[in-house]
Amino acid sequence: MQRRTFLRTASAGAGAVAFSGALWQGAATAAGVSVAGAGPYGPLRAPDANGVALPEGFRSRVVARSSLPVGGILWHPAPDGGACYPDDGGAPMPAQGYGGGWIYVSNSEVPLVGGASAIRFRADGSVDRAYRVLEGTNLNCAGGATPWRTWLSCEETWRGRVFETDPYGRREAVAHKAMGRFKHEAAACDPDRRVVYLTEDEPDGCFYRYTPEVWGDLSRGRLDVLCESAGGGVEWREVPDPSAPLFGKQTRHQVGSARRFDGGEGCHYADGTCWFTTKGDNRVWAYDAERGELSVAYDADSPLDGVDNITGTPGGDLYVAEDGGNMEINVITPEGAVAPVIRLDGHGDSEITGPAFSPDGSRLYFSSQRGTLGDPAGLGGMTFEVSGPFRR
């Protein structure tokens, strides 16, 4: 069944969270009132030399700037969705963790030449080199990492495609048209059910599930859309024609009972739950894949405003980046707190994009898509690293 919780209270004066799904076990019926500064890291200090306000014990650096050299290439404009990978050549990570370098992949949300780039970091955090992993694509916005260490780069444009890229720079990118031709935003892999969840950035967009014929090979499969069920809950129904022909119905219009979402954005899967955001109504949603239930996990205007990209940690914390607002990344904890962890000063005409943790969880990468310049073309984009005692 679909559950919706309104937790705006006059006494609290701030947002609150309703918990759902296996990720936050033990808190399924609880709600915690969020208060700025009440998170696990304490209040933000004054902005540092990079214009980044952080809690005590954290520090920032700028690792790349759009149109300027980094690691042998010019960093792309309008950096957007991103992910991190251990730099071990793609081999499985040892059970005790990985002690080497890592790679951060970032999309470029510009027309016609968008694509994606990667920065390879050495074990000490210094930049080894950078390189392109995708070229000549259109408005590459968000995406998602796969369990087999590839990056799904999504085109946020009419009849957009999903491209599977190689963060290690060994193989050419491949477009997977079976995953649907629509205004793609983000992707999140569910290895338990062997499916990929997809968001759509339209005011009447949908939430999709792609089931490949062979897990690990996304070239063939079935695309379903989340629909209203007769009993008041939700269910999956097949999209008749994912190719969305030029003169036919778009994917979101092919199934009449499809559940509508106001501007789908970030998407993150963990422990039986797929979390995704919708910017039009400033919500964080939770799809409980084990029970087939949909709920609203966050529905408030403060402290988190302008929900966009989302990521998480093994310990259950979610990190949600803001598009506009006061340019923060907020943490949503299993204990019920919603609080800012990062705030950018002087980036009022930008948005925060691409949050992703290094493999050991000690560093968080993200970008300010238009930087302090606020340039619509994203030529002033900045990519940051924040390191410190993150909960893991």
Rank of each mutant, 00 (worst) to 15 (best):
V386I: 05
A28C: 11
A244N: 08
P376G: 12
D271G: 12
V33W: 11
A286G: 07
E351A: 14
R291P: 08
R283P: 03
A377P: 10
A289E: 10
P79M: 04
L139I: 15
G248L: 05
A64T: 01
R259A: 06
V174L: 06
E228N: 11
G381R: 05
H347M: 03
A53V: 00
E56F: 09
V70L: 08
R252L: 11
W75S: 10
D323Q: 06
W215N: 01
D301N: 07
R259E: 02
F207A: 01
T165E: 12
A321K: 11
G115F: 15
P191S: 13
C189G: 08
V386L: 09
A64P: 09
S153C: 12
P79K: 04
G114R: 03
P245K: 13
H76D: 13
M327Y: 15
K279I: 12
S219I: 04
G180V: 06
M179D: 13
N330G: 06
A116W: 15
C84A: 09
V284L: 08
G32R: 14
E56V: 13
P111Y: 04
G71Q: 14
V63E: 05
S367K: 06
P86Q: 00
A14E: 09
A10F: 15
V196R: 00
P340N: 04
L139P: 03
G82K: 05
E202A: 09
S358N: 02
I73A: 10
D281Q: 14
W102H: 09
Q250S: 15
M382D: 11
V105M: 05
A286M: 12
F390Q: 14
E385P: 00
F261P: 06
A145Y: 02
N309A: 09
I73S: 10
F384R: 01
D301P: 05
A187L: 05
V162S: 00
D305H: 09
R370H: 07
V133A: 07
T251S: 03
G324H: 10
L294M: 08
R193H: 15
A18R: 07
G114P: 01
T29D: 08
D192W: 09
R161N: 00
S243K: 11
P245Q: 13
V35P: 10
E109T: 14
L344T: 08
E155F: 02
P376E: 02
Y319T: 06
R149W: 07
Q96E: 10
E156L: 09
G354S: 08
A270Q: 13
E164Q: 08
Y269R: 00
T383V: 14
V296N: 05
C206M: 07
D87K: 06
Y319R: 07
T29P: 13
G71P: 12
G272P: 13
T157G: 05
G316L: 07
D345Q: 14
D192R: 13
W148T: 04
Q254I: 11
F207Y: 04
G371D: 04
W236M: 03
F182K: 10
Q369P: 04
V52T: 00
D201L: 00
G57S: 05
V110K: 09
S387L: 03
Q2D: 03
R161W: 05
V113R: 13
P92V: 02
A339Q: 02
R209F: 14
T273K: 09
H76W: 11
T353H: 02
D349K: 08
A27Q: 15
V63K: 11
S117Y: 04
T273I: 03
N140R: 11
G221H: 11
A175P: 10
L223M: 10
